[in-house]
Amino acid sequence: MPNAALEEAFAPFVGQDFGPPEIARDPVNEAMIRQWCDAMGDANPIHWDAEAAAKTHHGGIVAPPTMLQAWILPGVRLADPDRPPSDKQEELHALFNQHGYTGVVATDCEFEFERYLRVGDRVTAKATIESISEEKATALGIGYFVVTRTRFENQDGELVGSMVFRVLKFKPSQPPQQASSGDAAPAKPQRIPAPRGHDNGWWWEALDRGELMIQKCSQCGTLRHPPRPMCHACRSVDWEEQPSAGTGSVHSYVIMHHPPVPGYDFPVAVALVDLDEGTRIVANVVDCPFEDIHIGMKVECSIEELGGVKLPVFRATS
């Protein structure tokens, strides 16, 4: 049942600016850009290496576009819960709170970028309450989606970019749970283990016992990996397990950066290893700086738990 009183009260907010434009406290500057790049791991030299940036079509250092909002963020004064609303957005949220819609969660944020910011530019931001949805039933509780749009301009009034931010103001369907010291820590994400079937389960079971195995044809002795039910050389379905010495060399390798996957702690190195027995295996290389990994590098295997899964891992042979 929509809340008619609330809807009548919030209708006049739609289309209103938060208040006067927010003016950046500092002009675009190299120090803030560098801190941002350090924090975000942004290694693109157009943001911090004046010499390199000068050689690009930018002609000098430019700010990372995604940093746009950072220039106008007002700081921790927002964090005081007893402070009266200081702009239209806060008034709107206070109105929702009065009606019991005390929960707030940001659902999504979209940026559009028009031009790069250069050192010395000064950003002005004008935020508007763009729309408020009908009442929606969500997993968190019933609520309304509030969409705001912020236009960012430079000192010449040129559009730099815009941000559309959507929050859900909702009536919590359950009271928030109090964290207590007795609660178990939330489960840490784990790596994805292999499904175990007829043809591969034995190999993982050997690994669970701490042994790296290679499948060997009982009839002709041909080794094969990954395991499969028939010998490609003689078509025998009889086979046995042979322990591997776990020594070999890197045939090729990659460094996984993106997209991050829970449980894997990217970046990680993955190598295709030529085992000395003659088969190949894909596995992680650990305890080796990425820049030192190379094709032909001698490695040796140990069996360790990574992300909750027992796996073969390789280290450079000392």
Binding site: R191, I192, P193, A194, P195, G197, D199, N200, P226, H251, S252, Y253, V254, M256, P259, V261, Y264, F266, V268, V270, L272, V282, A283, N284, I295, L306, V309, L311
Partner: peptide
């Protein structure tokens, strides 16, 4: 089963499979 020889190590995207071959090709 095929993919499970790669996914536990993190080699789980098309980019990663092609990158492994590309690295060797570049070498």
């Amino acid at each position: 089963i095929h993919w499970s020889w790669y996914i536990p190590s993190g080699l789980m995207t098309p980019t990663s499979w092609v990158a492994l071959v590309t690295q060797r090709y570049m070498h």
